[in-house]
């Protein structure tokens, strides 16, 4: 039977972390399951966790009165969910809903932040994985905002 450290290393997001680093972060991780329709994150709530998605798809939504909920992005296996845990005041900026049964490695945010503070090399290794995801999502969001397939495309 594989250890948690061994399992999380199979996730593409952490794939090239060292074994020792995996051991450390695995101490903050647990398996989580979300049934379809349940919310994994809620806008404004403390960002207590970040997730490596293993199975199932997640809709990142924003809700506005009259408009209802609007899906900004969908995420799936191999991707990460939750970025607010890195940025004070550590509150989620959108809702995340399980579109089907979703299984993740859920990381305790407080635990992970502490370990990063204590071991900046580990913190840096993790940041090097988060920043490209941030950049890629920001670029994609910008392109999406252009409405390039609209009438003037």
């Amino acid at each position: 039977m594989k250890t948690m450290a061994g399992l999380i290393r199979e996730h593409p997001f952490l794939a090239d972390l060292t074994e020792a680093e995996c051991e450390v972060v695995a101490g903050c991780a647990k398996n989580a399951v979300f049934e379809p329709g349940t919310y994994i994150l809620r806008e404004g709530q403390p960002a207590n966790a970040f997730h490596l998605i293993r199975h199932g798809r997640v809709a990142v939504e924003i809700y506005a009165p009259r408009r209802g909920s609007h899906v900004l992005q969908t995420l799936g296996p191999g991707e990460i969910l939750g970025l607010s845990w890195i940025v004070p005041p550590y509150r989620s900026t959108s809702d995340a809903r399980a579109m089907e049964q979703v299984r993740t490695f859920s990381f305790d945010a407080v635990c992970l932040r502490e370990k990063c503070e204590k071991d900046p090399a580990l913190g840096y290794a993790l940041m090097k994985r988060f920043v490209p995801v941030l950049v890629q999502r920001m670029s994609a969001a910008r392109l999406q905002a252009l409405d390039m397939f609209g009438a003037q495309a």
């Binding site: 899906v71 900004l72 969908t74 799936g76 999406q144 409405d147």
Partner: peptide, 17 residues
């Protein structure tokens, strides 16, 4: 799709994602 609707159960986001 850039923008889903109530019945859309597929992906939302840019193709590069």
């Amino acid at each position: 799709v850039d923008s889903g609707d109530a019945n859309w159960g597929g992906h939302v986001g840019f193709v590069t994602a």
